[in-house]
Design a protein around this nucleic acid. Structure first.
Lengths: 132, 132
DNA sequence: TTTTACGTTGACGTTAACGTCAACGTAAGT
DNA sequence: ACTTACGTTGACGTTAACGTCAACGTAAAA
């Protein structure tokens, strides 16, 4: 198997972002592609990292937060204190996710309510206009 | 019943934000408190608006997006086209909420996996140290 | 009356997350 | 050799969402 890789514009195209953005993520320490001379070569795992970044963005996370999250995924440098700290971080993340779930549920209820009022208003208009 | 209201610092205190932020939301057209002379007086519904803004923020919405959303909640100026457009907007929101739900689920799976690896690593260390 | 607490309106500063050039290298096609 | 396509590194510009003064008004408390 020949170590498959991607160019920067391939990834940019696939994810609908600019190459500038991708380089920016690298500046911020979120990705570290290999170099073939000057050019960047992105591995499959680099691509996954990009996915994670974008998922984070969709949930309103900052790049710093996403980097933290991504760093959790790799090996973990053994130390017991580090591991316990990592577990704490995980719990913290879980907590914010839970709150987001509640917020989404609330927003869905609100939208549903507006939707119904909206449909009723349309119903009313339909009846009114059929009276003419 | 005496129209109960809040001062700017009361709301700031309650929601853990600054008065500056609240005035900024007003500048951006998200709230419109009454005035008693110079001073702002926030009604219960102004307070609700603030809550909605903050919920939006927790989900990564911009202030402009939150204003759009909040504007959906009030009367709705009758027009049929407007109402249909509103329904479209609602559907669009719902779609992004659904994607967020998927993203959260994915992130929870990831976190769970890291948590387990982390706990296994701790287990291993425990056994190792008990060998001494 | 003077401090203290709270409010007001500018105006400028700041951070995040890029966009937008400029100026250049490289490799392939014609 | 020349263009075309793609890549690179700065450097500066921009927008959102406030923070941080400054300079001032007002009303109650000491």
């Amino acid at each position: 198997m020949t170590e498959q890789h991607f160019t920067i514009s391939e990834l940019a195209g696939e994810f609908g972002i600019t190459t500038r953005a991708i380089r920016f993520y690298e500046e911020k320490g979120l990705i570290n592609p290999r170099r073939a001379g000057q050019q960047r070569h992105y591995s499959a795992s680099d691509r996954v990292r990009l996915k994670l970044i974008l998922r984070g963005k969709r949930l309103g996370f900052t790049l710093d937060e996403s980097r933290d999250l991504i760093e959790m995924y790799d090996p973990g440098h053994g130390n017991v204190e580090q591991l316990n700290l990592l577990l704490k971080k995980i719990d913290a993340r879980e907590a914010t996710l839970q709150r987001q779930l509640r917020d989404i549920a609330g927003m869905q209820r609100d939208l549903q309510e507006v939707r119904q009022r909206c449909q009723q208003a349309l119903e009313t208009q339909r009846k009114q206009s059929s009276k003419l």
